[in-house]
């Protein structure tokens, strides 16, 4: 009887430990997901900023300015 009891306790203890490990793994995964999510958001944000910068650099007025500067440089002896 006592042996069975000890055996049950030991098995239950291991099972609980395993459950704790699974729970911890779950928490770690959620944490990683949250971190990744933030990174994705930050990257998207950086892309948005870049898009605007590219658009500003390629706007008709900016291009006209660049072309006129280039032309002036070529006209110089």
């Amino acid at each position: 009887m006592a042996r069975k009891l000890i055996f049950t306790i030991i098995v239950l203890s291991f099972a609980m430990l395993e459950l704790l490990v699974v729970r911890q793994a779950q928490i770690n995964t959620v944490h990683s997901m949250a971190t990744l999510h933030r990174k994705i958001e930050a990257n998207n944000e950086a892309i948005n900023v870049l898009k605007v910068q590219i658009e500003e650099a390629c706007s008709p007025s900016a291009l006209a300015k660049s072309i006129s500067t280039e032309n002036e440089l070529h006209e110089q002896p």
Partner: peptide, 18 residues
């Protein structure tokens, strides 16, 4: 994010950032 407004060739006319 608010939707972007783009012209007929896909050039950005208005965009939102955080």
């Amino acid at each position: 994010t608010r939707g972007q407004i783009i012209d007929r060739r896909g050039r950005l006319l208005a965009a939102s950032r955080v």
